[in-house]
Amino acid sequence: MRARHHFHIDHLGHSVSVTVQTGHAPVVEVLVDGKETGHATGQDDRPVTVTIELPTDPPTPVTVRATPGPGVPRCLLLGTADEEPHVMAPRPY
């Protein structure tokens, strides 16, 4: 059964939103400031990573890691190597 889960975080002055569609082949879509900047398809409950750039000067590369299951999906925003991962808050829609 497929379900959609939404996550959000404000990072470096930019809005990062993620939609995780669960199921046999989970789909992860990433929007930065309302524009789609990345997407990926995974397998089963394995984590899915999507590398994106935030439109800073110079652009800042970050990675979104979504874990579709088991259970409730989770989503992290991973910045630089010396930075702690940021837990993205779930959003009900």
Rank of each mutant, 00 (worst) to 15 (best):
M88A: 10
A89K: 15
A3V: 01
V32Y: 00
V87L: 12
T49Q: 15
L76K: 12
V30H: 09
E84H: 05
E29C: 09
G23D: 05
H39K: 14
S17M: 11
H11T: 04
D10R: 12
A66W: 02
V64L: 12
G42E: 03
V18E: 06
V72C: 10
H11R: 14
H86D: 12
H14A: 08
H14L: 05
F7D: 13
G23Y: 03
A81M: 07
H14Q: 09
E36M: 11
T80I: 04
T67M: 05
D10N: 14
T37G: 06
V50L: 00
L12E: 15
P70L: 07
G34K: 02
T80C: 05
P61N: 01
L76V: 06
R2F: 04
H39G: 13
R65V: 10
A66C: 09
T63Q: 13
L31E: 14
K35I: 07
L31Q: 13
V30T: 01
D57G: 07
E83R: 13
E36N: 11
A25D: 15
R91T: 10
V48W: 00
C75A: 13
H39W: 09
L54N: 10
P59V: 07
G42H: 04
G79Q: 03
V72H: 12
T63W: 02
T51C: 11
L77C: 06
V18Q: 11
M88S: 09
H5P: 01
G42L: 02
S15R: 06
V87R: 15
L78G: 05
G42W: 01
V18W: 00
H24N: 13
P61T: 01
G23L: 05
V18R: 02
P59F: 08
H24K: 14
D45W: 06
H39V: 01
G13M: 06
H8K: 12
G13L: 04
T67N: 05
T60S: 08
F7H: 11
A3D: 10
R65S: 07
D33F: 00
P55I: 06
R2G: 06
L31S: 03
L76C: 10
G38T: 01
E83D: 12
S17F: 09
L76A: 11
L76D: 15
L77M: 07
E84Y: 01
T56G: 09
R65Q: 14
R4K: 15
V30A: 04
P26A: 14
